[in-house]
Amino acid sequence: MNSAIQTNIIRIIFVFLAQVLIFKQITFSLGGLAYIHFLIYPIAILLMPVKTSRPVLLVLAFIFGIALDMFYDSPGIHAAALVFTAYIRNIIIIFLEPFDGYNIDDVPTLKRMGTGWFVSYISVALLIHTFVYFSIEAFSFVFFFEIFLNTIFSFIVTFIFVLVLQFIFRTKY
């Protein structure tokens, strides 16, 4: 269990640094209509052990989001989206529960849970997170078209990148 906590702490720090140092700089314009953002940071929360209790997730998501917002100069936006994602994470996990249930030390990674389970879990969670993030950023559903485009394209690139990362870093926890 100790190594699980260590792995998670290291992962959170690495994801944070990668997001603010590398992925923050990369944005593709899509004909002036929408922008592609790499929003890989939710995996810091999404890859934590299955049995992690909700309050822990929420507090971590809040701190992580606020720290991210300091670099993004947008107080509260990432934090709000990430807290929401942390809140619904357990609901998605319950929906995707296998027939024989989860083990006490299960982690929602590609290696442990299998490709089908991981793809459906990470795609639903990331899609919801991206949509919530762009909705809060626009702050009004007047911009529904922009929110929709941003969500779709950012989701696709982020999703592919997360899969690639999972194939590269085959961590035990």
Partner: peptide, 9 residues
Amino acid sequence: LEIICFYLI
């Protein structure tokens, strides 16, 4: 937490 976030936003 969401209320705090939206307050900040």
